Amino acid sequence: MLSASARRSAARQFPLRLTTGAFFLNSGISKLRADEATAEGLQQFAAMTYPFLKKQDAEKFARLLSVGELAIAATLLVPVVPAAVAGAALTAFSVATLGLYLRTPGMREEGSLRPTEQGIALAKDVWLLGIGVALVADGVTEHEHR
C-alpha cells in the first residue's frame, strides 16, 4: 500500500504525466505515418542544428523520432515508471528541441530569447523542460522520504 506522501505525489504528478504523455503519444503515432516529404522535412530541420543527422536516412530518422516519442509517452503514461525516470526522459527530449530553438536561425527575435512566429512551436518546449524537471525533483524527493 502506498504511503500518504506517495499518494499525494502520485496525485500531483497525474495531470502532468497524463497530458504530456498524451501529447507525446499523438505526436509519435503521427510520425509513424509520416510520408517521404514529411520525413525529409523533419530530418533536414533537425540537421540544421545537429549536423550529424545529415547522414541519416530521412524515413529512418522519422521512425526513430516516432519511437522515441512513443517511448517517452510510455514512461509518462505507465504509472509504475518512477517519476524521476519519466522526468529524465522528458527533460532530455526537451533539451534537444530547445537546442533547435536556440540554434536555428529565424526561431528567435534578433538578440533576444523571444520567439518569432516560426519559433513558437519550439519555444513551447520550455514547458516540457519544466514538467520534466518537476517530475525528476518530485521523484527524487519521493525516493528520499522512503
Rank of each mutant, 00 (worst) to 15 (best):
E144W: 03
L128Y: 02
E144T: 01
A137Y: 00
A88Y: 03
G106R: 03
E40M: 08
A10F: 14
L53H: 06
A4I: 15
A121Y: 00
A88L: 15
V95I: 14
V78P: 04
T104Q: 06
L90N: 13
Q13E: 15
R17C: 06
E59N: 13
L76I: 08
W127G: 00
V78E: 11
I131E: 02
F23R: 02
V67Y: 13
L42A: 09
A134T: 03
A11V: 09
G87F: 06
E40R: 11
R103I: 06
R33S: 14
L102I: 15
Y101C: 03
S5Y: 14
F93S: 14
L98H: 04
D138A: 02
R12M: 12
F14Y: 13
L70C: 09
G87N: 04
A34P: 03
E59W: 06
E144A: 05
I29V: 13
G139P: 03
R33N: 10
Q13V: 11
D57Q: 09
T97R: 00
A73T: 12
D35H: 09
S94Y: 08
Q118E: 08
R114K: 06
A86P: 05
E117C: 02
F45E: 07
S3V: 07
R17G: 04
G119S: 01
F45D: 07
L2S: 12
V85A: 15
G28N: 06
